[in-house]
Design a protein around this nucleic acid. Structure first.
Lengths: 186, 186
DNA sequence: GCCACCTCCTTGACTGCTCAAGTATATGCA
DNA sequence: TGCATATACTTGAGCAGTCAAGGAGGTGGC
């Protein structure tokens, strides 16, 4: 009754998901063997982001009813001149399409954190602008986000140098971020 | 007819999205001023991932009709013993929920890249297993993915050391990746 | 043997996003 | 001035994922 296929059925995790694994000195690696695998790095980036986002989403949604992407959107508005941006610019900053921005703004407009403003010189344009309420709420979210980030990159595990390196490397990969240190505490 | 608000309406991008910006020596930074901002780094990670995923999705969908997440799922199966994994293990490896895995597997099962296998010792378990076709297609996808990754981390811009550092830092952030160098070329 | 509790997986409902199509408006050249 | 082309935005449809609920099955203590 025990087929050979199930002889290996451990019910334990079947995915030893560790680092580089056995180094195949004669493997089909198209790169020089002394160079780290770029695909491996890319996949790690994606997986790391999933873990990080999950953590921020959990805290921000619980305390503020918003997701990390909501928060990031608001943060971009806060650092823009006049607290407002054209939607097309917001899309580029966030790495979304225009319709993605429209969809993302809808709930924020509904709860009064963001409002729509027309542009006097271009009738096609609709600005997304932070409301005073939006600013207040954002300051509170920012406080939480800073805490989560601080825990994530705890000084006992992350040196200033390591953090600096990571930040620089991510920037080189297209990792832009809105300036937010001018935003006062709630 | 020109309101003061629109005097600043440049129609040009209103989001100077550059690096660290002006260093606020007396800013409300809760960290020590000599330490990079962890929140900044986290936001850069998320944004960098968006850019990277976009690029992989574009190439993989155009040439192979799959997304990066499809590809990653298949890759995990390929490096598992017997080319199969329990769905709950796959969910953990990918950072998804169980239902996310169910949804992700559906189209792959439909096109014959993945099949379902029962476990002899546990009736609750349904394995996700690579089909022979799935293996062949995966090898082709892998070829493309390696190329995209190689372009993304071009040696002229990325030293082996920089890549090694990034890989290590991402690993520390929870960035796991399936071993794939044992998979032969198509 | 019984049962409380846990595990695995699926499904309905919903959210967040892209693509494609469409409308309104702006731009530049003949 | 007229018009081809481009830009900004929205909306319908569809995909990818989460949450909650539920059904089936497994485990361990009494």
């Amino acid at each position: 009754m025990t087929s050979p296929a199930d002889a290996a059925d451990p019910t334990a995790p079947t995915s030893p998901m560790t680092g580089p694994g056995p180094d195949p000195a004669t493997g089909p690696n198209p790169m020089t063997d002394s160079r780290p695998d770029p695909l491996d790095t890319a996949l790690r980036l994606v997986r790391a982001q999933t873990a990080v986002v999950k953590r921020f989403d959990s805290s921000l949604s619980g305390l503020h009813g918003v997701s990390l992407s909501d928060f990031t959107l608001l943060l971009h508005l806060a650092q823009a001149p006049g607290g407002r941006m054209r939607r097309v610019d917001l899309a580029e900053a966030l790495g979304l399409t225009a319709s993605g921005v429209t969809r993302g703004l809808a709930p924020l407009e509904r709860i009064g954190l963001v409002t729509r403003e027309a542009a006097a010189r271009d009738a096609r344009v609709a600005y997304a602008a932070l409301t005073p309420t939006g600013r207040e709420r954002l300051a509170e979210m920012l406080h939480t986000a800073r805490q989560v980030a601080a825990e994530h990159f705890a000084p006992e595990q992350w040196s200033a140098e390591g953090l600096t390196q990571l930040s620089a490397l991510l920037t080189r990969l297209g990792g832009t971020a809105p300036e937010h240190r001018h935003i006062p505490r709630p």
